[in-house]
Write a protein that binds this DNA or RNA. Structure first.
Length: 261
DNA sequence: AAGAAGACCAACCGCGATATC
DNA sequence: GGATATCGCGGTTGGTCTTCT
């Protein structure tokens, strides 16, 4: 078992500096090897934490701001179908993260639940609850917003592998349906040059010019992981040990390209 | 204007799945 | 094939901002 460095692991809110470093390293190495990135970036964060930050906040193409009515409708519809499969739902909402949708649903359902309660308590008469809002009460242990969709039972236990084929079939049907998800995609399918343009302010690609990247102020990566280059294959070590800034820049481009795909 | 309540968001935790050795 | 490491997901918590009284 590898030793895990528990000490000095930072927690809590990310600073701009950390974001900046993370973006640079993800640009270099892609958004897969989070533990590795966490190590070489010198961020003193866990890989998990880095991933989360990237996925939920720094990832290019993320939309921010209020959900559009179409998105809201889609969330409702998909939730009624899939239940709390947030990541799955998020895949249908380009630019939205599972966390964002989860949070949205939480507040949304809380509101609905309160409205319902209010409507029901005086004279338990009408309820204008939407058909898909299958609100469960908080009493009884389960989360109040844990409604579970039609698929919940079938898919529980088969967390993410199972329904993918079916999911694709569903998608096809759905995409042919009223929503033009393509339209949404158009919004985020920016030209390649811009596709790494982050949502976070002030971190334009230029700003992330690797030469001025603040990570260079911290122990240089190759110093930091002098005994860690071990895990790199040849190609990575070449990338990681540039001799000129040009090379470093091309590494950045390489990383960017791999990010873009 | 100040305090309380509610809404929103970012981040952490635990667990299961998957990849790698 | 088993052990270990890593990743990804869903649930939850806590902090901050906004609105209400």
């Amino acid at each position: 078992m590898k030793m895990v460095q528990e000490e000095n692991i930072r927690k809590g809110p990310w600073t701009e500096q950390e974001d900046f470093n993370l973006v640079c390293f993800v640009g270099l190495f892609g958004d897969r090897r989070w533990d590795f990135i966490a190590k070489v970036s010198g961020l003193n964060r866990t890989g998990k934490s880095c991933r989360l930050r990237w996925v939920n906040y720094l990832h290019p193409g993320l939309k921010r701001g209020k959900m559009t009515p179409q998105e809201e409708r889609l969330v409702l519809e998909l939730h009624s179908k899939w239940g709390n499969r947030w990541s799955r739902i998020a895949r249908k909402l380009p630019g939205r993260t599972d966390n964002e949708i989860k949070n949205y649903w939480r507040t949304h359902m809380r509101k609905k639940a309160q409205e319902k309660k209010r409507a029901a308590s005086p004279s338990s008469s009408s309820s204008n609850c939407s058909s898909s809002s299958n609100i469960t009460s908080t009493e009884g242990g389960a989360s109040f917003y844990d409604t579970g969709g039609l698929e919940i039972k079938a898919s529980s236990g088969a967390k993410k592998t199972g329904g993918d084929h079916q999911e694709q079939e569903d998608d096809k049907k759905r995409d042919q349906k009223e929503y033009s998800l393509d339209d949404i995609w158009k919004d985020i399918n920016l030209p390649e040059v811009n596709s790494i343009e982050p949502v976070y302010n002030g971190y334009s690609e230029e700003a992330c010019n690797i030469i001025s990247c603040p990570l260079m102020a911290s122990p240089a990566p190759w110093e930091y992981c002098s005994d860690s280059l071990w895990e790199m294959d040849e190609e990575e070590s070449k990338m990681f040990l540039p001799t000129t800034s040009d090379q470093f820049l091309s590494c950045f481009e390489y990383g960017k390209a791999s990010l873009i795909g």
